[in-house]
């Protein structure tokens, strides 16, 4: 009886999963169609012939190769931020210090600030340190997130203090303990944060748009926005660009997914 129930739920979930994922299937199929077929009505689900032309256009005519490289740089810089967040999470979790409570509150307050509407002040701040019009600058406003610090702290509170103290007795420095004891014990949360950091950098849109300045600094999101024209749209080209953005995140997610629920479970949001 229990098996029948599980099967029924499984079938329902499978249906929901297909509905959820369908837009992506539609995206990939459309990206492989020639233009007139992508806009025919009634629409055809499968392309009549597989055409890679839209992808070639992206790279040959539209500089998507460069946008991809820039996006990867933004993601790499993002991982420096992830390291900072891990440090902060560890600091908040494993040390008692003056102002800890207030500082942590302030960290959480930043979650409540509506970001898109403070663009100009943020831009001016970046500009005053000379980071506008650079790829590195694009990653700055989102480098550190309160959510990430929160997750790291939640997880690292569960690390046994005895092991850290043992390392201290062995004469290891605090930073060394963090690097070689605390971090290796934090794989699940690192997996969660890896995917979150990756998608934050890979998908970011407003900041590249505002900060990139020159086209050579554009990221994939901005390049994709350039494909959206008012007079006439080319769905095949747009969907090819969208596929180019979406598929790498899916691959990374599939690789890391078994750690992700575990990471959230152990960070104690329950």
């Amino acid at each position: 009886m229990r098996n029948a129930r599980v099967r029924l739920i499984g079938a329902g979930l499978a249906l929901g999963a297909l509905l959820t994922a369908f837009p992506f299937v539609w995206m990939v199929f459309t990206s492989l169609k020639p233009l007139n077929e992508a806009r025919t009505y009634p629409p055809k689900i499968l392309p009549s012939t597989v055409e890679w032309g839209s992808y070639l256009t992206l790279f040959r005519e539209l500089d998507f190769g460069r946008y991809t490289v820039n996006t990867i740089i933004v993601v790499m810089v993002g991982f420096i931020g992830m390291f900072f967040m891990a440090m902060a999470g560890y600091g908040f979790a494993k040390f008692e210090f003056r102002g800890r409570r207030a500082m942590f509150l302030l960290v959480l307050t930043t979650l409540m600030i509506p970001v898109q509407v403070t663009l100009i002040p943020t831009y001016l701040i970046l500009n005053s340190v000379g980071l506008t019009n650079t790829v590195v600058g694009i990653a700055m406003p989102t480098l550190v997130s309160a959510f990430g610090i929160f997750l790291f702290r939640q997880f690292m509170e569960t690390l046994p203090t005895e092991i850290l103290d043992a390392a201290r007795l062995d004469g290891a420095g605090e930073f060394r303990i963090f690097l070689s004891v605390a971090l290796p014990m934090s794989t699940p949360i690192l997996a969660v944060m890896t995917i979150l950091t990756f998608i934050a950098g890979w998908n970011s849109f407003i900041w590249p748009l505002v900060i990139a300045g020159q086209q050579e600094n554009y990221t994939l999101s901005v390049g994709l926005a350039l494909l959206n024209q008012q007079v006439s749209i080319n769905p095949a080209l747009q969907m090819a660009g969208a596929s180019l953005m979406v598929i790498p995140t899916i691959v990374l997610f599939v690789l890391l997914q078994r750690h992700i629920v575990q990471g959230f479970t152990m960070s104690g949001i329950n």
């Binding site: 748009l209 020159q214 086209q215 050579e216 901005v222 926005a225 959206n228 008012q230």
Partner: peptide
């Protein structure tokens, strides 16, 4: 050096 700006932006 040409920089394309999306009309929306």
């Amino acid at each position: 050096k040409v920089d394309a700006i999306p009309w929306d932006a």
